[in-house]
Design a protein around this nucleic acid. Sequence first.
DNA 1: TGGGCAAACATGTATATACATAATAATCCG
DNA 2: CGGATTATTATGTATATACATGTTTGCCCA
Lengths: 241, 241
Amino acid sequence: MTNGKEATLHHRILSDIEGRIVSGEWPPGYRLPFEVDLAVQYGCSRMTANKVLTHLARAGLIERRKKSGSFVSQPVTQAAVLEIHSIEAEVRSLKLPYSYRLERRVRREASPIDRQHLELTETASVLDLVCLHHAGGRPFCLEERLINLMTVPEAEGEDFSKSAPGTWLISQIPWNTAEHRIYAQSSSAEVAKTLDISRNAACLVVERRTWGSDGPVTFVRFTYPGERHALVARFTPGAGS
Amino acid sequence: MTNGKEATLHHRILSDIEGRIVSGEWPPGYRLPFEVDLAVQYGCSRMTANKVLTHLARAGLIERRKKSGSFVSQPVTQAAVLEIHSIEAEVRSLKLPYSYRLERRVRREASPIDRQHLELTETASVLDLVCLHHAGGRPFCLEERLINLMTVPEAEGEDFSKSAPGTWLISQIPWNTAEHRIYAQSSSAEVAKTLDISRNAACLVVERRTWGSDGPVTFVRFTYPGERHALVARFTPGAGS
DNA sequence: TGGGCAAACATGTATATACATAATAATCCG
DNA sequence: CGGATTATTATGTATATACATGTTTGCCCA
């Protein structure tokens, strides 16, 4: 998305203003020049200045008030972007050989706990899957997944013995909303055995709930063993330009 | 930022197209109507249609190719936005009384480990702080922080006995880049004692490194006790409209 | 003095227009 | 027939213009 070398007037003005804000030259609360003044300053029309300011406002770097002008916003909350790829991509980016094994595949009526996980109010059929992802011959991640067969009936025809359900699902459900919960947990005896780690070792758990346009799609819990894993997130204000 | 009730032509067109994409009516790879056709369809000028499409492209929902047209993009990686507020705001949002205590405040030359944490190549003076955040009378979060006195010399004049360094820093350093690492760790004897939890209990650790325009600013490690805490991140494609 | 009205001001939105650019389609000619 | 040239097409960027909208400022008059 960010080419780094776009020399349009728009980009020049944008990165110039962005630079002043990021560098602190224009501190939070500072009122930037009016649109017309910016237009004169950069030798462009007001429309172009307006576009740039609209852009900055959408990125959260500035706030705009009619009559008063545009102001550099206070950095209130820091938003970090966590990119969550597929497990296979994650392993391969570590230059490790990847393998996958399906441990369990059960079709059943949703239990109360299942319904809570999927945020279902009514009863429904679900597919209960457990898979194990390996990296370099060692257990890398335990995946426990519920698929809502009301919204993804096609899942019943897949056996998921060869490839992970996440990859298949993403090609089936076009777009969605997702909610993530990230927490630490001591490994239970069962998890410790599966992941080949000691009992009570700290695990990083990432839970994800996904919705499509027809309702809840899937709930998945990834358990990463031990203290070897970390999620890394980078944040730069105004990113995405 | 998102008002929810803006009835401008721009917003109507945008949410209509967004809806078609999110609902799957226009699946990944689908070529949307040309700008001129959209303009006719919605009864607006090409400029308005162009703005909407530019907007969608920036949000990552579509990709645009000259001559060929605009296409719904493949959902490749899921990006979750983690909002990281101040600890105090976090505690207060849980409707719990908040208190803060400074445990240590040492000024020293950066050790090799400090330099690694701050990504410093040369030697420098740092401020080493340890603070404890309480929620409802119980330890909520352990904060271990290094402040680079090369970039923030003003920090030496602050004693941080009353308020947390994070709040003060955010008002001093205008904008920055940050990198986060999130992982699980068994509590050491020392951490267990400080946080009043059992030895080897799983803790969620969030490390953050921050840069200003003059270089590395601060390194901080937040250790959340036990399994009571979770980071929650929500993701909707095209969010931020 | 103060309440209210009007002017001005800055942004917000939308249009028509123009030309640049990149990729494809059509054509021409050896 | 096939490679090179030209035309067409759709997007990309920028401008000038117009009017709407929400604030502030100041003025007028009771």
